[in-house]
Amino acid sequence: MLFIALAGLVVQGSNGEYPYLTPEERVEVVKRVKQALPQDKLLMAGSGCESTRATIQMSQQMEDAGADCLLVVTPCFYRGRMDSRALINHYTKVADSSSVPVVLYSVPANTGLDLPVDAIIQLSQHPNIVGLKDSGGDITRIALIVQKTRLQDFQVLAGSAGFLMAAYAVGAVGGVCALANVLGQQVCDLAQLCVSGRWDEARELQYRLIEPNTAVTRQYGVPALKQAMEWFGYHGGVCRSPLQPLSKADLEQLQVKFSSNGWL
């Protein structure tokens, strides 16, 4: 039986606070992680910037720093003009210029922009675009993307542990989950149960992960994730301004979300 463990690390995703880092810092983080990461683990580096030119440049720097593949978020500052034509052009140019595979990244909670399904379908045919991290949580949309891209060598990843089971049920092949920074083994256990077809057990575990996952993503965000990491023996550290630490009231509520589900 296949045993599911963490396949690797995503660096410079949403929880890496990449918008608050200088380009030099972003590259340095990837270099340091590459030095520390076991060779059998995948290093996916976020290289998305607002312009196509900057994204290509950052992607090259991430490759040079040791990234095995790139996670490229949708440009969103001019989101009103980021239609399928613009995004297909953007991602095609990035993928054409990269010597490592590219993973599309749709995170509408942060960008206000869903990567359109028709754009994903067309981009899935590009030989160097290998997958999608979808953090939107719309299972109907995820199922449609899986259906429309299944003839391609294209992998759909759930972007959150809160809907990981549902994503597996409609054909996703894994996840990139903020909660794995805190409850990594439990997230892997959920994936294992899904792959093994043990859906009743998977459902019970999924129930227990929803509240803490929501707390460290949509509800309280990065400050909550870093605090939870400290509780579980990891080094979360401080957030970069303008993000602020949790208030006392929010901290108490965060603790309830974890303790009431049996994790603290």
Rank of each mutant, 00 (worst) to 15 (best):
V11P: 00
S14Y: 06
N15Y: 11
N15A: 14
Y18N: 03
Y20W: 04
Y20A: 10
T22L: 10
T22A: 06
P23R: 03
Q39A: 14
K41M: 15
M44K: 03
A45T: 10
C49E: 13
E50R: 03
S51Y: 02
S51Q: 05
T52D: 14
R53E: 15
M62I: 03
G66K: 01
L70I: 04
V72K: 02
P75E: 12
Y78C: 13
G80M: 12
G80F: 03
R85V: 05
A86V: 10
A86M: 14
K93W: 09
A95L: 09
S98R: 07
S98L: 08
V100A: 10
L104M: 06
Y105W: 06
V107C: 07
L113K: 10
I121C: 15
L123N: 12
N128D: 10
K133C: 04
D134K: 06
G137K: 04
D138V: 07
I139F: 04
R141C: 04
Q147R: 11
Q152S: 13
D153K: 12
D153F: 00
S160W: 01
S160I: 00
S160F: 00
F163A: 04
A167T: 05
A167D: 06
Y168Q: 02
G171N: 03
C177I: 06
A180I: 00
A180C: 10
V182F: 06
G184T: 09
Q186H: 12
C188I: 05
C188A: 15
D189V: 02
A191W: 01
L193T: 03
S196P: 00
S196H: 03
S196W: 00
R198D: 14
A202P: 01
E204D: 10
Q206P: 00
I210D: 00
E211F: 00
P212K: 05
N213C: 09
T217V: 12
V222F: 05
E230D: 15
G236Y: 02
L246P: 01
Q255I: 01
G262N: 09
L264N: 13
